[in-house]
């Protein structure tokens, strides 16, 4: 149990700019707790379900190895130490908050975060070409555009986009598979 928690804590604390790459390195390459195929499968489920991808991966693996206690250990290891460090950094950052170049740097980092989000959206968009005739791909693109437009509406947009677009896309894929 402690080993699971420590393993995920080490992963999180190495994870500057994202934990996922390190999770592959630690779980598959170093410790060999998972095969490459198992990793891909678990990662796929983590992405399929809402929430942080690596958080879901930790829950699935902890559960698989040691049930509820394992899942709890994995999640606590992944999130607690890194969050405590972030709190300490927040104390430091708020002392510097009055400084104009710090505020300016923070805004620039949020702009970079927007770029990262946009890039991951575009990367996901590439996958809609997979296993589809041109008409199916066009319909998928229409659903993506629809979800994007609705999601831009402040506050209510995101839930409506997810709740409306998911069944539409599901019906489309069911019909296409026939």
């Amino acid at each position: 149990m402690a080993e699971i928690a420590l393993c995920f804590a080490a992963m999180a604390l190495r994870g500057f700019g994202g934990v996922l790459g390190h999770s592959y390195d630690i779980l598959v390459v170093r410790r060999q707790w998972l095969s490459e195929r198992e990793f891909a499968e678990v990662y796929g489920i983590g992405q399929l379900v809402p929430g942080g991808n690596i958080i879901n991966v930790a829950a699935i693996l902890g559960d698989r190895w040691a049930g509820l206690a394992g899942a709890t250990a994995a999640l606590a290891g992944l999130t607690l130490p890194s969050t405590l460090i972030a709190v300490a950094l927040l104390g430091l950052a708020s002392k510097l908050a009055g400084e104009p170049h710090v505020a300016s740097a923070e805004r620039a980092v949020v702009a970079a975060a927007a770029g990262i989000v946009l890039a991951s959206g575009l990367r996901t968009l590439r996958t809609i070409r997979e296993a589809g005739r041109p008409r199916l791909v066009a319909a998928r693109a229409a659903i993506a555009a629809f979800a994007c437009a609705i999601a831009c509406v402040p506050f209510v947009g995101l839930p409506i986009a997810v709740i409306v677009a998911t069944p539409l896309a599901f019906l489309l894929e069911r019909r296409a598979a026939r």
């Binding site: 959206g121 979800a147 994007c148």
Partner: peptide, 15 residues
């Protein structure tokens, strides 16, 4: 497969 276009649209919207 259905979740891919939805996710990509929603992520792009958030960005």
């Amino acid at each position: 497969r259905a979740l891919r276009p939805v996710a990509s649209g929603v992520i792009l919207g958030a960005g």
